[in-house]
Amino acid sequence: MTMRLGAHLRGVRQKYGSLVNCIADLLGPHAEVVLHDTSHADHSIVMIRNGQVTGRSVGAPLTDLGFYMLRESARRIETLGVYQGKTDNGKLLRCNAVNLRNSQGKIEAILCINIDVNGDNLSSVGKNDLQFKEHYQTSINQVIDSQIAEASGGQAGDLAAEAKFEVICELESRGIFLARGSVKQVAASLNIATPTVYKYIKLARRKKAVMEHHSKVRPAKQARLNNPKQISRNRSGSLPRQEARR
């Protein structure tokens, strides 16, 4: 198993490694360029240049924003666009990330660029940059803990059952349950049983599916209501005679 895993990681690095080096060589030491293997999110970084920007190295996990990109992969989100990030010690970053898909359309890697824009580089911050909160942890447990804290407002163990369900809905929307061991860690933090977390995840996914269905149905229904021919049908039960002959 270890040999197969190692071969796969080397394959992703060999496939995209020259791209990482090209970007890093061009942008210089203030630009961290990271290659994530998404099949092993808990230690996804297989190549990194200028890791001093966020303090990470090979073997560090996917970020919370990376999990979100995976969670929304079916929507064909290929890049988030240029956005501003900030490390836990307050370092301001200008970032972008892109999904790299295999021939079947599945995301096999994520390429991230994080540019340190502090000090002399501050002028490179764009006024129209998006604002995302991203955590650059070195272990998957830290990623999960930070997401639980954010979703629960730091009150994970003291919430009522309904509030705990909402926390799990939020964590599910962020893709955090794609991380190995996340269910048990969330259960421990919320002081609920592991089967309860699985139950809430199913309910959260069902809730999201219903909401997405309604969001698609309403515009279509409104379009029909705004259609003059549909209005005529609604009022008389059939099209006006002249239109019917056409």
Results as ranks from 00 to 15, higher is better:
L171M: 13
T87W: 14
L35K: 06
E243F: 07
K216R: 05
I140W: 07
P29H: 04
V217Y: 08
V33Q: 12
N50G: 08
V53K: 13
E134D: 11
A223D: 02
C112Q: 06
R245S: 12
K221W: 08
P219V: 03
S57K: 14
V12G: 02
R246W: 04
L80G: 01
K106A: 04
V12P: 02
I110A: 02
Q185R: 15
G105Q: 00
S238Q: 13
L122R: 15
G6Q: 14
A220P: 04
D25Q: 06
F67M: 14
E172D: 14
V20Y: 04
L122E: 15
I113N: 09
Q137T: 09
S236Q: 12
H213A: 09
D120Q: 14
S146T: 09
E78Q: 11
S139C: 05
G181F: 14
G28P: 08
L130I: 05
F177N: 00
S124R: 07
V12A: 06
K208M: 09
R218C: 05
Y198L: 01
A60T: 08
F177H: 08
E72W: 11
K127R: 12
S124D: 10
H135V: 07
I23F: 00
L225Q: 11
S44G: 11
A7L: 08
S182W: 10
Q230E: 10
L130T: 03
I23H: 00
L70Y: 06
S44L: 14
A74I: 11
S18I: 04
S44E: 06
A149H: 15
C22Q: 09
V183N: 01
F177Q: 00
R76H: 06
N121A: 13
F177C: 04
R241K: 09
I113T: 02
S238I: 08
V12L: 05
G81K: 11
Q52R: 12
N227A: 10
T38M: 02
A187E: 00
R206V: 04
N227Y: 11
D64L: 06
R94Y: 04
R71M: 10
N99C: 01
R233N: 00
L130S: 05
V46C: 04
L130K: 06
N21R: 06
N234E: 14
M211K: 15
A163N: 13
S39D: 03
